[in-house]
Design a protein around this nucleic acid. Structure first.
Lengths: 231, 231
DNA sequence: GGCCTACTGTCAGATTCCGGCAGTAGCGAT
DNA sequence: ATCGCTACTGCCGGAATCTGACAGTAGGCC
């Protein structure tokens, strides 16, 4: 079997993923247990299969953030669910995530057999998705702050239209119906608060990391709200 | 390169997909240009990779309906979009499709590196999805009728609560906000009509195929409603 | 029983893969 | 400009793997 080879390519990819900085080919070869010559061939194979690996002389290899899915079998319902869900995200989410959904959709559609693709177009469709309001805030900025656990300085408009300034520790971005909600610890109120992104007048990223870990905040918030963990 | 082999496995899978009835190994071997012995090995490889291929002595091979995705690279945003969309489908759609979404989610989560999986759990979540009302109709039955282009006999409750009986030609299932809508040609009104699935008191599948093709109906309906084709 | 088929074991030959060597080229620092 | 580090390619012999052929077992269909 060539199972050994594909296995090796997968571990190579995962090894490459762990490093964020450039890694030399020699190091990768040592970790995967092959010679340098073979490693170059393996890298070429991965690139041929669509992996975004960049190599520069004098520096090493870096893998663009993302993930390679191994070959997988999906049933009709599963494909239909993935496509429908992606269409919903493409219409509902913020531009950055919506673009991701559209790209994923295009990738999947590109490898789908024509008959199955036509079936999808015809059998399930998203008629319309109402948008409550346009975001004032930069959702990409919020997403970045969440990923890196950094504080945000907000100008927020509450229910009555009053503007308040506050520093918050964002740890999640939720979708409630068609409204996006940032969930964060609010230093002003000393409690968890939900902020509708269409009411965030401005969000400024601070360079300060908040003193608690995101998963912990999320867990406490879930307990307080009585929301079970995601499937 | 082993590119030849994986290429061959992919064409084998696609060949197998074209037949709906059992195919003998000899025929498959001839079509892919290998010996019988190698074909058995190839089938075993595909099964090891998760393909749902069933072989029975005296009959041949059949591939369960579905599709195998080749290895693909997804960016962070794309994976996040797929996961978020699947969660939405799992909560919003009918049980059959929801189960498909949950299964797809589980498959993706199973091969995701732990750190990325945790990132997804924390950074994006679906807070809640309101359900307007429970479906009275069997959505799976409707989905089947659409796929096979069969007529349905409905008992439908209109806006004022009046019950009407009608024969329709269903060709699409839409999602409008959190309400599912079946789109069909109504023989009673001689026009296109939308039927909210939570108002369909009963749906009986007839054995009759409707006289027009689904894509044509869909196209005419789109033109009438001014809805552009799906991305 | 006869026919067709899925499967497994074995084995020699064809094919591919792997490691080592040599050489070219780009990047950064001294 | 020179040196060290690195990516990358061509080539070749030995190792590993894959392939095809044959033989044999087992299960379904007539």
């Amino acid at each position: 079997m060539t199972v050994a080879r594909s296995e090796r390519l997968l571990t190579l990819l995962q090894t490459l993923r762990r490093y964020r900085q450039p890694v030399s080919g020699a190091k990768l070869a040592a970790e995967t247990g092959v010679s340098i010559r073979t490693l170059y061939r393996d890298i070429a194979s991965l690139q041929a299969q669509g992996a975004h690996i960049e190599g520069e002389a004098g520096l090493g290899y870096v893998l663009k953030p993302g993930f390679m899915l191994p070959p997988m079998m999906f049933s009709e319902e599963e494909i239909e669910a993935l496509v429908l869900g992606s269409r919903w995200v493409a219409k509902t989410a913020d531009p950055r995530l919506a673009a991701g959904a559209a790209d994923a959709l295009a990738k999947i559609a590109a490898v789908l057999p024509p008959d199955l693709k036509e079936d999808l177009d015809n059998s399930t469709l998203l008629v319309a998705t109402p948008r409550r309001g346009e975001d004032k805030a930069d959702v990409a900025l919020i997403r970045r702050a969440i990923r890196s656990e950094h504080m945000l300085d907000l100008v927020y408009e509450d229910d009555k239209g009053a503007l308040t300034e506050r520093r918050v520790w964002p740890f999640a971005l939720g979708f409630f119906d068609s409204v996006r909600v940032m969930i964060a610890w609010c230093e002003l109120r000393r409690d968890f608060r939900h902020f509708r992104t269409d009411r965030i007048s401005s969000a400024v990223s601070t360079e300060k990391r908040y003193p608690r870990r995101r998963p912990v905040l999320l867990k406490e918030w879930r307990e307080k709200e009585g929301i079970p963990p995601q499937p």
